[in-house]
């Protein structure tokens, strides 16, 4: 037996004959933050729903907190916390009542809830909002309360489906701080996101999936080093396209021109920078390669949805 908290092996899920998840395998070790990345429609949410036992897979096996899913999904869910993509706090209740009611769904005794709830409100920075109605909370407060709610059963595995979508930068940083605290406490996290900065900050290991298949999986830095040239020069402006065709294409290891921007990927950017010095009609940015470059390289630039 491995120490994997979640083990997905050859997962297949089809809708009307079309595979949405197509032979996906990955394993999450205890204490790590595993990021599941992919464009819209890549199969992230379907994978999560299979793991929770809400839908039955058409193939493959899932083992969550040591239990087979969907067979023992109910028992497995007792030890898992979920932060869904869309807020679904109970609007008829206060912050505290939301935690109590949710705790009851797990069958947690009143005395134990009374002990846990102050700590969770404290963790979420919502002590002063204990008796506030959900309708009066801001978007960031709601997300923090949803995160606190997902911890009511002291889960071994925390599953977060795009936890910071729609939040402002301040609220996102607060959520990230909270998640880092949980990782320091030794919790295991499965995170789906399409914010690359979020994945880069939090995830110890990543899987990039597209069309329901795993394309690459490793530590974030290793993935970038493996798939993308280390340096990027982004060139913008009216002349960027012309410059890209005449100079960029020859000097960069790889170049992508879209609209009025040329993305040049290079091991050695100096020759590119030299030609840009005397170039009029362009602005440029020289930076190290990041996860977004990797993501775009692996999943392409065309729009999804």
């Amino acid at each position: 037996m491995s120490d994997a908290v979640l083990k997905v092996d050859g997962l297949v899920k089809r809708y009307g004959g079309t595979p949405v998840v197509d032979g996906l395998s990955f394993a999450i070790e205890r204490g790590e933050c595993f990021g599941l990345l992919g464009p819209n429609g890549a199969g992230k949410t379907t994978t999560l729903r299979c793991c929770l036992g809400l839908i039955d897979p058409d193939g493959g096996t899932i083992e969550m907190v040591g239990l087979p899913v969907p067979l023992a999904a109910r028992q497995a869910r007792i030890r898992v916390g979920v932060v869904p993509q869309m807020d679904n706090l109970d609007p008829d209740f206060t912050a505290r009542e939301n935690l109590i009611i949710y705790g009851r769904y797990f069958g947690i005794a009143k005395a134990e809830l009374d002990r846990r709830i102050p700590k969770l409100l404290d963790f979420a920075g919502l002590q002063s909002k204990e008796h506030a109605s959900i309708r009066t909370l801001s978007g960031g407060m709601k997300r923090r309360l949803t995160l606190a709610r997902a911890l009511i059963n002291d889960p071994e595995l925390l599953i977060l489906d795009e936890p910071t979508t729609g939040l402002d930068p301040q609220a996102r940083h607060l959520i990230w701080d909270g998640l880092r605290q949980l990782l320091n406490q030794g919790k295991t996290i499965l995170l789906t996101t399409h914010f690359m900065d979020e994945a880069e900050r939090l995830a110890t290991r990543l899987a990039v999936i597209d069309h329901g298949k795993l394309i690459a999986s490793d530590e974030p830095r290793a993935l970038i080093a493996q798939h993308v040239e280390p340096e990027v020069v982004e060139v913008y402006g009216d002349e960027a396209r012309a410059w890209g065709e005449t100079h960029g294409r020859g000097l960069a290891d790889r170049i992508e021109i879209t609209g009025e921007t040329a993305f040049c990927y290079a091991r050695d950017p100096q020759p590119l920078l030299k030609t840009l010095l005397g170039q009029s009609g362009v602005r440029y940015l020289h930076r190290p390669a990041n996860l977004e470059d990797l993501f775009i390289k692996l999943t392409g630039r065309e729009l999804r949805d």
Partner: peptide, 15 residues
């Protein structure tokens, strides 16, 4: 509207 059921079925309670 409130997706209350979605929240509940993520716990040991089934649909």
């Amino acid at each position: 509207m409130q997706r209350t059921w979605d929240a509940i079925i993520n716990t040991p309670i089934s649909l």
